[in-house]
């Protein structure tokens, strides 16, 4: 298993280099200009100076290798320095600088990570916690009223877009009832019980909107996978040798049914870090997703490159995690 993991990690390096180059090219060749968002009253010679100072005029490969070096070497060192206080990073001031804000991209990401992890992460956990029991019960009692209602709700959650449910919840709970705020306060700090309640209130709507969306997809996978397994011979054998229904379903069937579901869960984890662009916009959470969308709109190439590259790394890593988890769930799957 360890050899397998190491081999996969080494193989990931060319993959990531290739991805990074493609991301770089796509973003770079897109016809947008970093000065387009500035007022028309700025004279053209000043615009030319701004472009020059951003390094837009360097040859493409020079720009790519400059960016790559900063991305894989300087920025991790700066991150390391920030965490430990050791003076590890080079002091030449070279960072990946956002065109838009003139500040290091990694700092922007660090500012936005907490709210994205809190809102999107919690909603994912809530989604999994809702989805698994619903999937299991729906499959075990197939075509019962519970299954019918579960199917209806998951279809609803999956097919109604979050920009609709989000605004609907805001109109009901923020505008009409006034229970929850419609604007997420990213500077709020949880220090005691009262401030925790405030945090809970401001995150409950985005968490539920995203949670419902995630749960509906996963509960369908869980249900389908359970149904496949419930009709297998080993289930009949287990029952025939006198095992209780609880053991049969929750130990024998569940474990086997989890394999495809784990794939879905693990491969969706990078999306947590990516934020939920639309939901973040609707509730003004201003996390990673919103950072990415604003960067795309304003031609802020370094930010787009960095954020998409981080997504690529996460996707590669969680793919590997899913593969390793198969082995844990099913001892017959071994890679060595």
């Amino acid at each position: 298993m360890l050899t397998f993991t190491i081999r996969r990690l080494i193989l990931a390096i060319p993959t990531l280099l290739f991805i990074s180059f493609i991301i770089f090219l796509i973003v770079k060749l897109s016809p947008s200009d970093p000065t387009a968002g500035l007022p028309l009253t700025i004279p053209p010679e000043v615009r030319a100076q701004i472009r020059e100072s951003l390094g837009v005029n360097d040859p493409l490969f020079v720009q790519y290798f400059k960016w790559l070096k900063l991305m894989v070497w300087d920025e991790p060192l700066h991150l390391f320095e920030g965490w430990t206080g050791w003076n590890a990073a080079p002091d030449d001031g070279a960072r990946i600088i956002s065109y838009q804000t003139r500040s290091p991209v990694t700092e922007l990401i660090a500012q936005r990570m907490p709210q994205t992890l809190w809102v999107v992460g919690v909603s994912y956990i809530v989604g999994v916690l809702i989805a698994l029991p619903i999937g299991i019960i729906s499959a075990y009692r197939q075509y019962s009223w519970f299954d019918q209602i579960g199917t209806f709700i998951s279809m609803l959650g999956f097919s109604v877009p979050t920009f609709f449910t989000g605004v609907l919840l805001i109109v009901i709970f923020a505008v009409n009832l006034g229970w929850f705020p419609s604007v997420y306060d990213t500077t709020h700090k949880v220090t005691d019980w009262d401030s925790f309640i405030v945090q809970l209130k401001q995150s409950i709507m985005p968490v539920m909107v995203l949670g419902l969306f995630n749960a509906s997809q996963m509960s369908r996978f869980m249900r389908a996978s359970m149904l496949d397994n419930l009709n297998q011979d080993y289930v009949r054998t287990a029952r025939a040798k006198g095992l209780g229904e609880r053991t049969v379903v929750l130990v024998h069937v569940l474990r086997n049914s989890l394999i495809p579901v784990v794939t879905v869960i693990a491969l969706n984890v990078p999306a947590i870090f990516g934020g939920a662009i639309i939901t973040e916009q609707v509730f003004k959470v201003n996390g990673i997703g919103q950072l990415l969308i604003i960067a795309i709109q304003s031609g802020d190439i370094p930010t787009v490159q960095t954020v998409s590259f981080i997504f690529a790394v996460l996707i590669v890593l969680f793919n590997l995690a899913a593969d390793v988890l198969y082995g844990v769930l099913d001892p017959r799957i071994r890679y060595d």
Partner: peptide, 22 residues
Amino acid sequence: VTFKGGGDAAAAARAVLETGEF
């Protein structure tokens, strides 16, 4: 004084005129 960005113009108007958060 706190400035809050993000969202859209309609949401900003709502936060002042409807929910009174801002």
